[in-house]
């Protein structure tokens, strides 16, 4: 008897957790590195600066944004490539990046993040003297 009860509460909790689990769009990204750091660009059309969240938690970087598109009332969808309005993607950072110096810019729906490397870890070219 108590077992069934427990299963029921467990099932309800499961369902609740699943209902809260929204569907997110995965933004397309470009990631490249130069000697000073890493640059990440993400396409998030419809997301304005104030609806964008960039969060660093330990070595986890999460980008999230809500696209705001004003649609007239009573609109009926004829065709849709995009059926969700929330973007989300996360990345694991490595320790040589200075997480408190991350710079974020949002322009025309493209997020650009600059993740600089720690100064002491930037590669230094070693000159070989001949002679």
């Amino acid at each position: 008897m108590s077992e069934t009860k427990e299963m029921q509460t467990h099932g309800a909790r499961d369902a609740q957790a699943r209902a809260e689990q929204e569907v997110f769009l995965r933004p397309a990204v470009d990631i490249y590195e130069d000697s000073g750091g890493i640059t990440l660009k993400a396409d998030m059309p419809g997301v304005s600066r104030d609806r964008l969240h960039v969060q660093v938690d330990g070595n986890n970087l999460a980008i999230e944004g809500q696209a705001a598109i004003d649609m007239p009332q009573g609109m009926e969808s004829l065709y849709a490539d995009v059926s969700h309005t929330r973007f989300r993607r996360s990345f694991t950072l490595s320790t040589e990046l200075e997480t408190d110096k991350i710079n974020a810019q949002m322009k025309d729906g493209v997020l650009t993040l600059r993740l600089p490397k720690r100064a002491e870890l930037q590669p230094r070219k070693i000159e070989v003297s001949v002679g």
Partner: peptide, 26 residues
């Protein structure tokens, strides 16, 4: 092809047709 850039949504109301083109960074 599905997944082509740019993604497009089309909606219709009695007064007009709205086309949304998701073209970031253009």
């Amino acid at each position: 092809v599905a997944g082509s850039y740019p993604a497009i949504n089309i909606g219709a109301s009695p007064e007009r047709v709205d086309v949304y083109v998701f073209a970031a960074g253009l």
